[in-house]
Design a protein around this nucleic acid. Sequence first.
DNA 1: AATGAATGAGCGTTCATTCAT
DNA 2: TATGAATGAACGCTCATTCAT
Lengths: 204, 204, 204, 204
Amino acid sequence: MKSQVSIRKKESKREEKKEQILQSAMTIFSRDGYYKADVEEIAALAQVGKGTIYRHFESKKGLFLGVVEWGIKIMKNTIMEAIEDIDSPIKKTTHAIKTYLEFFERHRNFYRVLIQEITGFREEVERIFRKKYLPHICLIEEELKRGIEIGVIKDINTSTAAYALIGLTNSIIYKWLISDKEYPLNNELDIILEIWLRGVMVKE
Amino acid sequence: MKSQVSIRKKESKREEKKEQILQSAMTIFSRDGYYKADVEEIAALAQVGKGTIYRHFESKKGLFLGVVEWGIKIMKNTIMEAIEDIDSPIKKTTHAIKTYLEFFERHRNFYRVLIQEITGFREEVERIFRKKYLPHICLIEEELKRGIEIGVIKDINTSTAAYALIGLTNSIIYKWLISDKEYPLNNELDIILEIWLRGVMVKE
Amino acid sequence: MKSQVSIRKKESKREEKKEQILQSAMTIFSRDGYYKADVEEIAALAQVGKGTIYRHFESKKGLFLGVVEWGIKIMKNTIMEAIEDIDSPIKKTTHAIKTYLEFFERHRNFYRVLIQEITGFREEVERIFRKKYLPHICLIEEELKRGIEIGVIKDINTSTAAYALIGLTNSIIYKWLISDKEYPLNNELDIILEIWLRGVMVKE
Amino acid sequence: MKSQVSIRKKESKREEKKEQILQSAMTIFSRDGYYKADVEEIAALAQVGKGTIYRHFESKKGLFLGVVEWGIKIMKNTIMEAIEDIDSPIKKTTHAIKTYLEFFERHRNFYRVLIQEITGFREEVERIFRKKYLPHICLIEEELKRGIEIGVIKDINTSTAAYALIGLTNSIIYKWLISDKEYPLNNELDIILEIWLRGVMVKE
DNA sequence: AATGAATGAGCGTTCATTCAT
DNA sequence: TATGAATGAACGCTCATTCAT
């Protein structure tokens, strides 16, 4: 009979292998895109057999969604941890964006996966987005609402404003990704805030 | 000897067929993405044989690039025509964004094609972008510069501000695309301008 | 009403066009082989429309067989004319081989067509062979028989001997075709005769 | 850990499957020629999936070259084994031709593959020929040279004479292949030797 | 549980042939 | 009669998925 300990050891080994696969998948998906990516190459990079991937994920599609979910979870945790102790709505939002930029600066691959052509199963990706990514936007919305309440933010459609901030930030990240010179992405934080905050803050 | 007239008739028929193909290709590419899209289905939708597509375009890739180029040309012309008579930098930019929104409201499919991430020939797509799309961003930059000169715009990095505006607008379009309810995209113009203009305009 | 003369003029113009097509087809078939050869390119080289080819020949296959037949006819005529006035069996055969070599030296393309992979319709090609080419071998056989009768040739299986001569000659032509240096094919006549004649002649 | 034995078992199974494919490919290539041959039919005949062929050969072309190489290797070995113990140049050559005839009598398909004219990669086929087939001709040349040295063969261009023998033999094989009645090819050995040897031997 | 050889549906592309002009 | 634009059957090759070991 297997002891609890050895079962747990096995479990953790299994998890480890799964992370290995997710990591490799992210690398390949970000380099080649969903359709061009080759499951065999992902397996080779993860140093497992092709069949093993199918023990952990239902299909190539499932693997891709797994990567998206995994990445979003890490991103969310990173941002949440970074801002949990901040109280001021403006400062909280500001720091969230800062952390967001830093996260993608460190994980360019994940951004490339996120903006991927995921046609054909947009629905599922969006379900993940809604479940895992949107709460993050809601966070901003909540802060905006709090900001409106305490009178530092204009009485604006918070949903659109939140999307605007994300979109604005994303386009800056995109510009950075396709640029040749490697300037620190963080430099752009000020201009993002300059533009966005001026727009949403009440005139002093 | 063929008359000039009959030659011209043939030419125009050829163009007509090419537009038919481009139109169908845009529909399918926007629904399925580049890789999933089936050339045979595009042909069927355009009511031509598969071979006919290859008389007009070198390959599936060439067809996709053709769609991108075609769409950008129409978009550019639409916007240019709409703003050519406007003088004030702020009004010009405002109206450009308005037309941009209206254009994608009418041609959602094209937007879906544009944001595709086609690995393996990102380079060519970007070459088209640089040649056909970026002048459009430059236009905004120029207006920003003029605005700075005449003192209605803050002395800001015009390139980043232009990207910010495009990104902000795009994210609003994206939000609209994935939304279930079909509210008019134009409604969002005000909030875009509210946010962005406040950010770039000098305080009154 | 069309005059006889103009009809005849038309007929000859038609024949001229057909020869143009045959000539072009031989060039392309010899360069590319049957399957790789492109009917469109043949048409372009003959300076006619693709459809015109199908007025003169039933199909690509028919065109190929036409080329074979046309070439064999010319070859046969060339050889026949060259040897008709010669009487001695040995001299007649010798001169036939000489003319054969000269013919292929001038028309390498035709040899390339003849040895082509004509699988799938070997039957038809062979029918042409039997009807147009074998009489030529029979000619040699007849000369051999006459030689046997008059006692200058050994009493040998004439069919095999004729094939042996043709095969021997063909292999020499093949060797010449694939060689880089362009030595005159005629040089090899002596060795062919040396080998073949010594073998078939009675010891003096 | 896999045992050496099971690895060896796998290897031999792989080789077995490869030979199955080569055998089927030879059958189809010989019946249809390179271009007409259908990879799917080859797979069906070998009782493997289409994909399996591409695990063993890079492409259809690679498969064809594989068949050529495989056949030549077997042919060479067969002939070499048959003549290695013979010393006299004349007898050695005689027996080589005999074995050559017997080989093709047993493997008509291979002959049909060999004489194919595959435009577009004649070069590669010839490289294999030069590496695998020409040594065989050289063998004859060497025997001829030895024969000249010891005075049983006339002082003749050995290269041309060797080609002559091969060509002569091949044309006999060709005649046999297209004949309806199935006479034993070996019957023709005597006449080949009669013609060729008498031609190259010094007059007694 | 892990593997990777085998599979075959699926798709891009070609090109002989047709037929409206 | 001559043309060449249009067609679609045909085929080589890929790669996600399966399954015997």
